[in-house]
Design a protein around this nucleic acid. Structure first.
Lengths: 181, 181
DNA sequence: CCGGGACGTTCACGACGACGAAACACGGTC
DNA sequence: GACCGTGTTTCGTCGTCGTGAACGTCCCGG
C-alpha cells in the first residue's frame, strides 16, 4: 500500500473533483490536468501541481518526477495495527503508545498539548501528571530508530517530527500550515 | 527592503543561471521561464517552479501566487504555539519570549520601540528597565540558529531581520559597512 | 579634549517550576 | 517464572525570569 503513496495521481480538472478530494485527503501527490479555458487553481500544497493540456510529454514527465521526488522524501509516519510505520520500516507499539502516537501523527510537525495527549492516552480517569512524561520517554526511545523524534515545547506540549537532518521542505510547509489552523 | 524576501523572482532559464543560484541560496521563491526547446528542470524544492513561454498571463499569475503562498509560510518567521518557526525549522519560546517575538515578527524588518516591546512583554506591572535587555539577549541567542537576528537601533528600539548568512548581497554590504565604521 | 550620563550588552546568581530518567511495584499473559 | 505493559515515587537537571553589577559605547556640555 505504500507504493500508492508515492504514486502521482493524474486528475482531470474539474471533471474529477471528487477524486481530487480523496487524493488530497490521502496526502498523495497529484497532478491536475486542465483543459483549455479552465482557470488555473492556486494551491500551496507542495504535493499538488497542475498543467494545461495539451502539453509536451517531456514537460509532463518533468512535473511528475518533481512530485515523485517531493513525495519520496515526504512520507508521513502512520500508526497501523499497533505499529508505527515510517520510511520503509516500523516498530511495535503498546496500546497506550498507539493512542499517544496516533495523536502525535495526526498533527505531525505541530505542537500537541499535554492535555490533548492526556485525553488521547486516557479517555477516562487520567492518572498522575508524571505518567505522561514517562510514556513520552518510552515512545521517544522506540521511534528514534525510525528517524523520528519528539521535541518538547516547555509547558505547552510535544512535537513529533523528523530526526536531525532528514526534514523535507514540503513537510515543513505543511506542518506550519497545520500549526496555524 | 525586506519586502523582497517574499517576492517571487522571475528568472529566464538558462540565460540567468547565476541569478538563479543566488536566489536559491537566499531561499527565496523563484519561477523559471523556459524558452521553447529548453528542457524542463526537475527540482524538488517547493519554492521553485517553472513555466514554458509563451504562456497565458493568468497561468503565470497562478504559479506566482502559489509560490508566494508557500513562501509566506516558509520564508517569514512566525510565532505559533509557543514556537518561532522559520525556514523549515523552529525553536521553542518561553511565554515571555513568545510575546516579545510576536511583537517583533508582526513588524518584521521594521523598528519596534522599547515601550511597545515592554507593553507586549508585560501588559501590566513592567519590571526593571534592564529586564527587557536581558530577554532580548536571550531571544537573540535562541533565534540565531534559525538564521535570524535582532539588531539594535539605539534609543529607538529593535529590528528583527534575517541573519548574515542569508541576506541579499546589498544588505550584507550595508551592514558590514555599518559595523566596521 | 575631557568627564559624565544615558543607553546597551553581558554575565552571574537565586528561586521556582517543568521535565527527564531511573527504579520499583503490580497485574496479566505466555 | 520470565516477560510485558502500566503507573507511581523519587531525585536530578534544566528552563524560566527577575535582579544586580561590570563593562562598553555613544553623545553632550564644559
Amino acid at each position: 500500500m505504500d507504493a500508492m503513496l508515492g504514486e502521482v495521481a493524474l486528475i482531470h480538472w474539474p471533471d474529477e473533483a471528487e477524486r481530487l478530494e480523496r487524493t488530497r485527503r490521502r496526502g498523495a501527490p497529484r497532478l491536475l490536468l486542465l483543459g483549455p479555458g479552465t482557470e488555473a487553481p492556486a494551491v500551496a500544497d507542495p504535493l499538488e501541481d497542475w498543467m494545461r493540456l495539451p502539453a509536451p510529454d517531456d514537460d509532463l514527465r518533468a512535473r511528475i518526477r518533481t512530485l515523485e521526488a517531493r513525495a519520496s522524501t515526504d512520507v508521513l509516519p502512520r500508526v497501523v495495527d499497533g505499529t508505527l510505520a515510517h520510511h520503509g520500516t516500523w516498530v511495535p507499539l503498546s496500546p497506550l503508545e498507539e493512542r499517544l502516537a496516533g495523536a502525535l501523527t495526526e498533527r505531525f510537525g505541530a505542537v500537541v498539548g499535554r492535555e490533548a495527549l492526556m485525553r488521547a492516552a486516557w479517555p477516562d480517569a487520567p492518572p498522575s501528571r508524571n505518567a505522561l512524561d514517562v510514556h513520552v520517554l518510552r515512545l521517544r526511545r522506540r521511534i528514534e530508530n525510525l528517524g523520528l523524534e519528539i521535541r518538547t515545547v516547555r509547558s505547552r506540549g510535544y512535537v513529533l517530527q523528523m530526526g536531525n537532518g532528514q526534514m523535507a521542505r514540503s513537510q515543513m510547509a505543511r506542518s506550519q500550515m497545520a500549526r496555524s489552523s
